[in-house]
Amino acid sequence: MSAGLMAEFQEAEALLRALRAARAAGWRRMDAYAPYPLPEAAELLDAHGGPVAWIAIGAGLCGAALSYGTQYWLSVHDYPINVGGRPLHAWPAFLPATTIVAILWAAAAALLGMLALNRLPRLHHPVFAVPGFGRASEDRFFLFLSSRDPRFRPEATARFLHGLSPLRVSEVPEK
């Protein structure tokens, strides 16, 4: 039992053509691999960057609240220092650190959230066993059709992929 089939293409356009064909044929459990971002491919795969922005905004607001709250509590309640009668709750003076800490939280959370959404780090993955897959990070483009898609029939799917004029079609092992 294999995890699916992988077709290798020479050009980005060939991959996009194949992806469109697979989508039109009703494929949903599939993936595309490219050495650089192809926004059109992501669209065909229904992939969105969406949640990242929300993670960043949420974490940024948390960081801001924590930073401002710390400054307020320390300066007004725990350790008030009277400097020439200036207000203890000096909100303009609290804003620089608040902004900066918010940015730090947003960036760090977005990065961690992104890794979690991408299920990375994962050093080993079955697709690496596909012959020639190393060039997915250079100049080759790959289309993967998963055996978990209800449409998957080993011979018929292989025929379908061969019909898209790939360089070659290989099996992706289960593990």
Binding site: Y33, V52, A107, H125
Partner: peptide, 24 residues
Amino acid sequence: SLGWRGSARHWQRHDALYRAMAGL
């Protein structure tokens, strides 16, 4: 490289994050 394999889905999120970080 954390096992990066160039999936279009990963690229999409990579780009989204990279833009968000640039905005910050």
